[in-house]
Design a protein around this nucleic acid. Structure first.
Length: 496
RNA sequence: GGCGGCAUGGCCAAGCGGUAAGGCAGAGGAUUGCAAAUCCUUUAUCCCCAGUUCGAAUCUGGGUGCCGCCUCCA
């Protein structure tokens, strides 16, 4: 895996054999999540699934930042409490993540529940002389930390200071150095606040993560995750705080995902170029399409979101989904349930009946995933596995299927089994797309439609294709599309 | 100005020194009265220049273009 700390690929070695501790930076719960968040959590979900699949016991912790200026602003504009806004957005977050098939983290601590450890961590830093308080604020003294900049490769003397006046002036006057950052902020009137040795106030942004890592996972963890935009200053500051307090390394591996771009620019709330996960799902984009969209690019590279790229993912997913569903959709013909499922890994290794090509696909998949989570490459294995299965389903659909030899039939089954198994490692699951025609049919006269189809059928039998096409066009005009299937069956769907 | 990253067919995208995965779109074909859907087949020498090497998309040096970070951010 590429370790941001060393900027190179390193072999992964956990602190304790067989166990992995992971901390993933979560969201600030002030609004719905957008596609950028989706990418981050899909990618880390795949990392987690893969580690579990490889046999590791993974302890995955992800926080909710539920104390923040943006939440406070939102609350005041909606005349709600900060807690109300947070609670609502945590619910929405879960709804979106569940829909995307992202496994829930083992623990999801909140800043509001971690105040004790936050306060004691700040006291610790103060006792060590790395923090100073000014009028109820407490700041971390960046210049005292000798390794500051190790993660982001920065030399503070060369950084922009207070660029374009984007930094709070009051804050700046209190700081001893422009790069010092707040550990604790005194409360302004009317703001939610919590008691502390420095007066009423609330924690700064970075300290909660340091406190939570320590409280939930210990002094040193295996992997720390987050978006590339968090490298500086967030993660740099986290390292400074944690390592000063404990004297230990915070995380052995740091992994960062690339941004989602919109016409070459980062998707973000402030630029207003974002698309929420919710609106995508509501517009009929399937969760699995979004996973495919995300996983088709390497996690560290920027990923451009366009209408075309989404359409490509949609079509791609349809094909893969077809292959994933073959054993279920055509079970009545294939009768694959007669085969023992068993342990696929053992079957692949020990059974000499297993075709070499399947073993190769399996090995290749692992090699690609081992190589810094090459999901794009791993997907190509899935498509390769799926191709013959799609052919098979086409034969069945067009009535050209005939029972193959027992051996071929069994290897088709194994192929399907392997495909479903590997897809699951990427969190991709077959979706049943049958019976969509009944969704909003209440608005339409079903009897009329079916009567029309019957009339058209008669016209077709008597080779009156002009009438047949006219009926189809008329139905099309009222939003009903007809599809002739083998065996004289006509299906209809409602067009949006 | 500092730090980091990227540049591969019409579009997206893998590739990590041994002769270009995969997806989408397009084209041709199968199927179909025609459609749609589905399946089959098929399309590149890798931004530019110089070098290292038997051999480079892959390494080195120099360009050019784009992006991220240096407020908040996944």
């Amino acid at each position: 895996m590429t370790n941001t700390l060393s900027r190179r690929k390193e072999a992964f070695k956990p602190i304790r054999p067989g166990k992995v501790t992971i901390y993933c930076c979560g969201v600030t719960v002030y609004d719905l999540c957008h596609l950028g968040h989706a990418r981050s959590y899909i990618v880390w979900d795949v990392l987690r699934r893969y580690l579990i699949w490889k046999g590791y016991i993974v302890n995955f912790v992800q926080n909710f930042t539920d104390i923040d200026d943006k939440i406070i602003n939102k609350a005041s504009s909606e005349k709600l409490s900060m807690e109300d806004v947070s609670a609502r957005n945590i619910r929405e977050f879960h709804q979106d993540m569940d829909a995307l098939g992202i496994m829930r983290p083992d623990r999801m601590p909140r800043a509001t529940d971690s105040l004790d450890s936050i306060r004691s961590l700040i006291s610790n830093l103060q006792e060590k002389g790395f923090a100073y308080s000014v009028d109820g604020d407490v700041y971390f003294s960046v210049m005292k930390h000798s390794n500051y900049g190790q993660l982001s490769g920065r030399d503070l003397t060369n950084q922009y200071i207070n660029p374009e006046g984007r930094v709070d002036k009051d804050d700046e006057n209190k700081k001893q150095n422009a790069f010092d950052f707040a550990l604790w902020k005194s409360a302004k009137t009317g703001e939610p606040s919590y008691p502390s040795p420095w007066g009423n106030g609330r924690p700064g942004w970075h300290i909660e993560c340091s406190a939570m890592v320590l409280e939930q996972l210990g002094e040193t963890i295996d992997i720390h995750l987050g978006g590339a935009d968090l490298i500086f200053p967030h993660h740099e500051n986290e390292i400074a705080q944690s390592e000063t307090a404990t004297g230990k390394k915070l995380a052995n591996y740091w992994m960062h995902n690339g941004m989602v771009n919109v016409s070459g620019q980062k998707m973000s709330k402030s630029l207003g170029n974002f698309t929420t996960i919710r609106s995508l799902l509501n517009s009929g984009v399937s969760p699995m399409t979004l996973r495919l969209f995300v996983l088709q690019a390497h996690y560290r590279k920027p990923l451009d979101f366009t209408k075309e790229s989404l359409e490509a993912a949609t079509s791609g997913w349809q094909g893969l989904n077809l292959a994933l569903n073959i054993g279920i959709d055509y079970e009545h013909i294939l009768l694959w349930s007669k085969y023992q499922k068993g342990d696929l890994n053992i079957t692949l290794k020990t059974n000499n009946q297993t075709p070499e090509s399947l073993k190769k696909h399996h090995q290749r998949f692992i090699a690609l995933m081992n190589d810094d989570l090459n999901t794009s490459g791993a997907l190509s294995i899935l498509f390769d596995l799926g191709r013959p299965l799609r052919s098979l389903s086409n034969k069945i659909k067009t009535g050209h299927y005939s029972k193959s030899s027992v051996q071929d039939d069994h290897s088709s089954f194994l192929r399907w089994n392997l495909l479903v198994h590997l897809a699951k490692v990427l969190g991709l699951k077959g979706e049943n797309i049958k019976s969509q025609s009944s969704i909003s049919s209440c608005e339409l006269d079903v009897e009329f439609i079916e009567h029309s189809i019957e009339l058209r059928k008669r016209a077709k039998v008597s080779k009156d294709f002009a009438t047949a096409d006219r009926i189809r066009n008329e139905l099309n005009n009222i939003g009903v599309e007809l599809f002739d299937k083998p065996g004289g069956i006509t299906e209809w769907h409602i067009n949006e």
